[in-house]
Nucleic acid binder design. Structure first.
Lengths: 185, 185
DNA sequence: GCTTGTCTGTACCGATCGGTACAAACAGCG
DNA sequence: CGCTGTTTGTACCGATCGGTACAGACAAGC
């Protein structure tokens, strides 16, 4: 009885990248196998549920990363303005200054079915609410904070779409600059 | 020698809807056939280039629609503020107040290859530039107009993503309201 | 050494993919 | 009516899809 090491966790980043680039439908098992270096045997051993389970695991990992690195500071950091600045810089780093697509956004646009919808909605809802909380703690009125938070989350998504559509990562950087002015003036 | 009627044009809206909902990869010919009511024979007669030609035709049709209904007024309407308001209302109607996804945005996130990239980039570039021109004509400084226009285009895309992700069309309406304030204060 | 259970490569499955071939059905024109 | 060319349904193609079966390779415990 050998233990199962983090083979699953090791493969996740590569799998995520394939989903990111090709979307759920476009990410074939052949592609995933090639990028992870894993054969079908290993893949289905680590993810018995197949492609759907891989997507769920990837979405969970992304959600956990943002929860830890972004949402938690927004909620708990004693300096809310610093937490918002951290959010902007972590976002810039995570999306490689606009060169990387947002998997959650891509899934949101195409998929309708599956249990993915809940995770996707949760990801954005958590972000919006954590940011609104930080804005309130920074002294903004509640209504303004809600509006500002929703605008920020949606603006980041739009920045990713436009940067990729125009094939111009600078769009993403300019958008973050404007967000910084709006959020922590 | 019977003439070829607008069979191609007739089928385009239905095809566009399939691409919108399922993405390029997810839109199978079986699905397209079912939604258009056309068999493979008719489909390949109207679009000899197959799925790729269908996608190109759909993108061209969308581009032409926005050019006529939105970009041209932004550039030419003697009242630029009215043209911007028209843009917002046409956008709201076109995307069914957030219930409809943006095909161009969806393609932008997944595809990298193909000749689609040019059309996709052109669609957003034209929008951004036409809006910037209207803002300048409305009295904004050039730099501010460019920044505002890019922000507006990207915000609309983000609004579509978030509205769909949260399954809450109201997000789209709130976003348009904020845009109205920013653009035509 | 052998056993036991975890891994993994390979062959294979039915279904479906996008695309082609082609023969009927059809409309206009004489 | 034939004739001509367009439009369509249907059968079919090889390739690939996601997924399964399973026999070996492997590591740990005895």
């Amino acid at each position: 009885m050998t233990k199962k090491p983090g083979a699953r966790e090791d493969a996740l980043p590569a799998i995520a990248e394939v989903f990111r680039e090709y979307g759920y439908e476009g990410a074939s098992l052949a592609l995933i196998g090639a990028r992870t270096g894993l054969g079908k045997g290993s893949l289905y051993h680590a993810f018995p549920g197949g492609k759907a389970e891989m997507a769920e695991a990837v979405l969970d990992a992304i959600g956990a990363w943002f929860e830890e690195k972004v949402y938690a500071p927004l909620r708990d950091d004693p300096d809310p303005r610093a937490a918002i600045r951290l959010m902007l810089s972590e976002t810039d780093a995570y999306f490689r200054s606009g060169r990387r697509a947002c998997l959650v956004g891509a899934f949101a646009l195409t998929e309708g079915r599956d249990g993915f919808a809940d995770r996707i909605a949760g990801y954005f809802r958590d972000w919006r609410e954590a940011l609104a909380q930080a804005l309130i703690r920074a002294g903004r009125p509640a209504a303004e904070a809600d509006s500002l938070a929703e605008d920020a989350v949606l603006t980041i998504q739009g920045g990713l779409v436009l940067a990729r559509a125009l094939d111009d990562p600078a769009v993403f950087g300019r958008m973050l600059g404007r967000l910084d002015m709006r959020l922590v003036s």
